[in-house]
Nucleic acid binder design. Sequence first.
DNA 1: TTGTACGCGTTATCAC
DNA 2: GTGATAACGCGTACAA
Lengths: 341, 341
Amino acid sequence: MPRYRKPAGPAPRAGLTDVARAARVSIATVSRATNSPDLLDKDTMQRVKRAMEKLDYTPNRVARRLRQRTGPRHLIGLMVPEIENPHFAEIVRGVEDAAYEQAYAVMLCNSDNNDAKQQFYLDLLRAESVDGIIIPPIHDRDPSVLGLTGLPVVAIDRRLRGSSFDSVRVDNRLGARLAMEHLLARGHRAIAHIAGPRQNPTSMERLEAWRESLAAHRVDCPASLLWQGNNLRDGGVAGAEALLSLRKRPTAVFVCNCMMALGVLEVVNRMGLSVPGDVAVVGYDDPPWAQALRPALTAIRQPAREMGRMAVELLLRRLNSPGARPEHRILIPELMIRQSS
Amino acid sequence: MPRYRKPAGPAPRAGLTDVARAARVSIATVSRATNSPDLLDKDTMQRVKRAMEKLDYTPNRVARRLRQRTGPRHLIGLMVPEIENPHFAEIVRGVEDAAYEQAYAVMLCNSDNNDAKQQFYLDLLRAESVDGIIIPPIHDRDPSVLGLTGLPVVAIDRRLRGSSFDSVRVDNRLGARLAMEHLLARGHRAIAHIAGPRQNPTSMERLEAWRESLAAHRVDCPASLLWQGNNLRDGGVAGAEALLSLRKRPTAVFVCNCMMALGVLEVVNRMGLSVPGDVAVVGYDDPPWAQALRPALTAIRQPAREMGRMAVELLLRRLNSPGARPEHRILIPELMIRQSS
DNA sequence: TTGTACGCGTTATCAC
DNA sequence: GTGATAACGCGTACAA
């Protein structure tokens, strides 16, 4: 007699054992029915399948993940700084798309660009035995990401130095250059830049390209035309208020991301300036609402969804061949010329 | 000698056994150290803790979830129709907020309002032994949601009939009424409505309230003023093109969600109509960009983040007291009056 | 082709 | 207080 009582669980679902009993085979056979169907006798297979359907059997993914040390565990960890940022929402969408096709589940983590929170989530993902982690590092040499050893990692969207991880990102210097060349060609010379946080590799690349573009055209670039923002809307507001109040007001503003562009436009409107007459605006990221603005926002479009898909692709590839050389994919941004410039 | 070879795994992390060996105690004691620390001798506790730190031990959440049938498994399943819709992104954010505070992980699923895809994900979530599922049903009597038995479910954002699940949503009729009363007070009589899909309970509630508001004011409501959209941007475009080309052009449009409002504004701009002079526009949902539009969009604001937080709260509450009566929370929307009306 | 039995890393029961 | 050990549901090496 059993000396161990079964505790009252919420959902007593059928397991291998139940199916085995119903089909009059061993649990090994049932397991094989899903994992290596070719090994089964056609007749046995029929019986098993019927039993499975009758019992509404679904393999328990938790048990499977616990047992499986070599094969895929069908779970991806996805870190995101801020899900309400449309750029990252689009990345998430791409990841989900690709994951769904492979029957992978996605565990979503929101770091808020906070190191401690990110570290917590990374530990959690390890403890969940994910197959791998897709993550935009908080900065260049993000130690919590670099510390991720023995686990496939794909750095997405942001540069990571000194790692041997696979990566996908968009050419930020190119994007910024496209924006700047466009403004310069339009005759602008006093082009301000509202940048993102210093630690953010993406922001820095765009900032550098802003500087370089001006230098390449022998255009002055006083420090007063640079504003360091936070990639949030209020950062754009603060930046625009400062820059547009300068005695020598810039004739154009290049904004580092779409959330800040929002703030800039609000200020521009509030100040009663005309766009692009008084000041031209070029944003980064091309959210759905860019075209609905009036004037519609000229912006740098990034293939974010594609980036998400690729990250999954790289991750799965790495699972199959752990020894392969790290692969780095750089996607191409695109200038969407609209009425704001 | 072992007849079972350990397969080469990617990340051989320390387990209870390793800690137990290092601390010279049994695995039971180590387990208790994390789960019921009070039971341990102070001295033993010290030894165990030290061993844990030395080995960088983290409990394996997968094994824990497999074993645990009574306690919480610290995993929530979250379904979302479309993560790129800012309304749902905000809900996700709220859920993540609350989940993080309780050290819960979130498994994110994107249904695309597609029944088959949703069913797939629901099966997956069961197979992952989630503690419960937070989901906006695709429609009123969504069978795949109603079929979710033996598992805590919280219906979020959209009405679900004939269930005993907990729920949180926003009063859609009230929201629509606020919008309509506002337009009527401004003197509008020919108020068109661009509705969402028929199957979507939320859209239907807003549609009904549109009708009722007009009726309450004894205003005519010809079928030509109603356009059935798809809650996506192109739906808004199609709707606006149709409605604004009517011989008797409406003087105002009430749009069912923010994505479609985007499309409407594009068409309005393209047609060269002035807002609110030629036509007033009121949207639903209050995304960050509503204020950046020119004119800024009058809209109904929903406490989406709060809704997400509450859903988690309800879920955890249900876990603790499975027998409690279903709880239904109705949140209050708010009219944000801006320049588009 | 199928069955037996072990182990994945835990939690929970019972005995000491 | 602590230890020994069954059980969670599954995959798989090995025997049959």
